[in-house]
């Protein structure tokens, strides 16, 4: 087994993920306004998997929580969890963290 992953690729994919997640957040906000929870769940599910695989544990955890409340369709909780994802996204994207 090769000892180290391709770090440069992982850095690139993290950047891609953060850019895509900004767009996803906008889509989830719109979806939430029309109570379109399945879209929120799908995007949160995708984010949880990608962030976790890229070592962004806290972002992955926040996305899993968003997915969980999205599946229950509880709008206020979804809103709160979505903001938690955004906060984590901001933290990860801050220059010292990325």
């Amino acid at each position: 087994m090769s000892p180290l992953p391709d770090d440069s690729l992982e850095v690139l994919l993290r950047r891609k993920l953060l850019t895509r997640t900004r767009e996803d957040v906008d889509a989830m906000r719109s979806a939430l306004q029309s109570a379109e929870f399945p879209l929120v769940v799908r995007l949160a599910h995708r984010l949880a998997g990608a962030a976790g695989a890229l070592g962004l544990e806290a972002l992955s955890h926040a996305a899993r929580e968003l997915q969980r409340v999205g599946e229950r369709g509880e709008a206020p909780l979804v809103q709160a969890r979505l903001e938690a994802v955004v906060a984590e996204l901001d933290r990860v994207a801050a220059p010292r963290a990325c």
């Binding site: 087994m1 090769s2 391709d6 994919l13 895509r20 995708r46 998997g49 990608a50 890229l54």
Partner: peptide, 18 residues
């Protein structure tokens, strides 16, 4: 894998393992 990011990452891991 339907997510291109996760696909590319897992592909690179597997390719790195031969």
């Amino acid at each position: 894998e339907d997510d291109p990011i996760q696909l590319e990452l897992a592909q690179s891991w597997l390719a790195g393992n031969g």
